[in-house]
Design a protein around this nucleic acid. Sequence first.
DNA 1: CTGTTAGCGCGTTCAC
DNA 2: GTGAACGCGCTAACAG
Lengths: 347, 347
Amino acid sequence: MQHGARKKTQTMADVAVAAGVSKSTVSRAFTQPDRLGPETVKRIKNIARQLGYVPNHTARALSTGRHGNLALIVSDVANPFFPPLIRAAQMEADGSDFCVFLGNSDEDPRQEDRLIDRFVSQVEGLLLVASRLTDEQIVQHARRRPLVLINRDVPGIPRVLIESATGVRHAIEHLAGLGHKHIVYVNGPSSSWANRQRRNALKVAARQHKLEVDLVNAHVPSYESGRAVVPQILDSKATAAVAFDDLTAQGIMTGMAERGISIPRQFSLVGCDDVLGAATYPSLTTVSNRSDEAGRAGVSLLLDMLSGRMAGDTRLVLDTHLVVRQTTAAPAQEKPKGSPSGQPERV
Amino acid sequence: MQHGARKKTQTMADVAVAAGVSKSTVSRAFTQPDRLGPETVKRIKNIARQLGYVPNHTARALSTGRHGNLALIVSDVANPFFPPLIRAAQMEADGSDFCVFLGNSDEDPRQEDRLIDRFVSQVEGLLLVASRLTDEQIVQHARRRPLVLINRDVPGIPRVLIESATGVRHAIEHLAGLGHKHIVYVNGPSSSWANRQRRNALKVAARQHKLEVDLVNAHVPSYESGRAVVPQILDSKATAAVAFDDLTAQGIMTGMAERGISIPRQFSLVGCDDVLGAATYPSLTTVSNRSDEAGRAGVSLLLDMLSGRMAGDTRLVLDTHLVVRQTTAAPAQEKPKGSPSGQPERV
DNA sequence: CTGTTAGCGCGTTCAC
DNA sequence: GTGAACGCGCTAACAG
């Protein structure tokens, strides 16, 4: 047989004639088998399989309004924070026979909006992770389709929040306990709920422990941003830094190493999200993350909404803790900057 | 306003009456603006936007047979090999206004098959990455829909292959050049095309360089598998190992460290796929990977097929190279096991 | 240039 | 229990 020869798609009508019944009967055989002769159902299903008939998802959706699809939109698929979340969401949806569209907003609100428009007419619900849209935009979209947020806190919209505040607080206590007096927080994206949350928690905790706090902006959470921001960190008198996420922290480690500054001997560093495991050297002290649970819970919430089992203002909070590894220590006696001491420092 | 009050979805008909034209005209305003009065188009589009009208993707698909969707199925979303590929594929599709379904087969052929059945009636094309299906199954699916393979070589099916063989060959030369005589290859999944390719390339190159090769099986490419397989590696007399992928290699590094074996002083290690960057310590020597390019190319190929611009037996090969970092060195003089020798060797 | 008509494949009233 | 007719929202022939 010639390649490229595509098999004609079988329809309900084909099955109907082959079985000597009407289309309605075939339809019922698949959707309401109990309202049909058990013998008929078996016969029809058999013939259908023989013919290689697969129900047309699209036609069914048009007719019923149920697509059995949902959309998952994240800001950056390649950011290691997301894959576990995506995976969990995907598999949770799968368990209920839902298909999931994946969208990558690339940190751009307009792109995110475009994607939603493209998806909205073929999904039953939307799952937005770390959305960069405004509250108003989100509310608008939520009026069109059931909508669940992950790591974004908009009153009235069902949401799953990873409470990194807890972990950040512990990080501050940890640093204060080691003797640090002055730290810097490296901001992530300004429109990020997670970033605001972390920064605020950090400020509050720092005040309690009488730590001085400087702020520095990385904007985009990435290795490169972290590396680029090192000079600003060093300009402050801080002896430790908490970074928006692990990627940024990893970049900072590299930047520090390039300047011959040893972590944690001369400078302490804490990341966030625990996406790197113990892969860095020294292994990174960081705040735990439960993104897979968040993904699973988000989808579960959405499915509940779709089946009407849900109402009101759900707000699911997953808390976190500090994972102490090897990038934090007591501050050096000397200033971190100009110390060309003769000790062999690892890069 | 009560929450949960969903806004009624606007249809073409609504726009039509509001604009005082027929549905067809509205339709054309969106699909063939040039066949309409430029004034009319503008007016209609305005009204549409005002009403919050969004074309119904599903209805359009049913009518035209064009869904504007494609399915991307991978074996494990959370494996760091895939996210860049997924991201690139997603954005490439996005550029042509295609939506992409993401499927996670979880390394299970039956699950992969189920996913395809679920997707097939609502996509125009399928993109299978590292498929675990049999050749026959793949050919069957390809008869129903345009289908592109990534890292799977089935004659007659368009495919994009990351030729890690090149890089593996260089790895062997590199190890041989350092003086290694006996190495082990740590297998990945047995149904993986990439694994067979790497193992074969390794064997051939090893023979040329007169290296002895032992095989060890990790089956699942993961950190844990790598760690678990360390005892077997040490049972051989090998002085170096090439692992199926970086994850496995990272696990091996941990396992070695736990046994007090220093890499690369007492044992050399090469990974594959370069997904960890320089994040490990010591930073991992590995074979480069171009998964993002593969993703982009795969989608591009698929889109070409859909627009009829393509025929025949496309086979796109992306080659790779060795990235030498710090986990390879000359073999120790003594046996790798019990040697507290004092030599400070850095690469 | 624009309106009319007829489906796309399926679920769902209604009758029988 | 089962069949016939209508409509989901849109595009693709045809007119005009």
